[in-house]
């Protein structure tokens, strides 16, 4: 079975470490905040200028001056800091954020990522994604392994305009967890019940399959 969005978030959350500053993109990455392991403290960075993003507000706490990068109303946790956009991107470009999680349309075996523009379709903009992928050392890309029509999104070479070049080293799809090294995807883990054959078939880029590929495990919901 392919992973659900919630399971993908759970799997990514296992990469969090105590004391990490983390930037979560929109979509599945946002869900990661719901699965921060017990006993681990992480600070969520929101690129509109908030370090220490808290929960959504209650109706009484809603404040139009307090939003996240997705423009949703949020709260600040105790110990949060708020600052300008330039300061926020200094943190991002300066490599001070420990982990960035974001979505993508395509990733290739060279670590290139395309996530912001499909030619011919309406282009809304890259927001902070180009800064995030250029600035972070440690990025996890979350995406479906193949399109609805079965076309692989893990490619030899991205076909869509890039968000960043050579900057992605880890990918979590609904089928597998992979790392990118020396111009190839390395299959590290597979989703429960998903065969290596299926992953091989749905990966267009160069794929290295180790002898043993462990299956991910999830606690029963």
């Amino acid at each position: 079975m392919a992973l659900t969005r919630e399971q993908m978030a759970q799997r990514v959350a296992r990469e969090l470490q105590d004391g990490f500053y983390v930037n979560l993109g929109i979509g599945i990455p946002t869900l990661v905040a719901n699965y921060i392991p017990e006993g681990i403290d992480v600070m969520l960075q929101s690129e509109n200028g908030l370090l220490g993003m808290g929960r959504f507000p209650t109706e009484d706490e809603v404040d139009p001056d307090m939003i996240n990068a997705g423009k949703q109303t949020v709260t600040a946790r105790p110990g949060a800091a708020i600052f300008s956009s330039a300061e926020s991107f200094a943190m991002i470009r300066g490599g001070h954020v420990d982990l960035t999680v974001l979505g993508a349309f395509e990733v290739d075996q060279h670590g290139n990522i395309a996530s912001w523009m499909v030619p011919g379709k309406l282009i809304k903009g890259m927001g902070g994604a180009m800064d995030l992928v250029a600035g972070a050392e440690n990025i996890i890309c979350t995406m479906t392994h193949a399109s609805k029509h079965g076309e692989s999104k893990l490619l030899e070479q991205c076909t869509l305009p890039l968000t960043g070049a050579g900057c992605i080293n880890r990918v979590l799809t609904d089928l597998a967890y992979l790392e990118i090294e020396n111009g190839a995807f390395i299959l590290k883990e597979r989703a429960p019940g998903v065969s290596v054959e299926e992953i091989v078939e749905k990966t267009a880029g160069k794929l290295v399959v180790p002898e043993h590929v462990p299956e991910m495990t999830f606690d029963p919901a």
């Binding site: 956009s85 330039a86 470009r93 290139n112 890259m126 927001g127 180009m130 070049a165």
Partner: peptide
């Protein structure tokens, strides 16, 4: 890019005519 936009304004106000950034290289 959002960080480039913020930095363009910051640099403009600080009398710095241009700056180098990795953001957007190869795109």
């Amino acid at each position: 890019p959002q960080g480039t936009l913020a930095e363009k304004m910051r640099a403009g106000g600080a009398g710095i005519p241009a700056f180098y950034t990795a953001t957007g290289y190869g795109t």
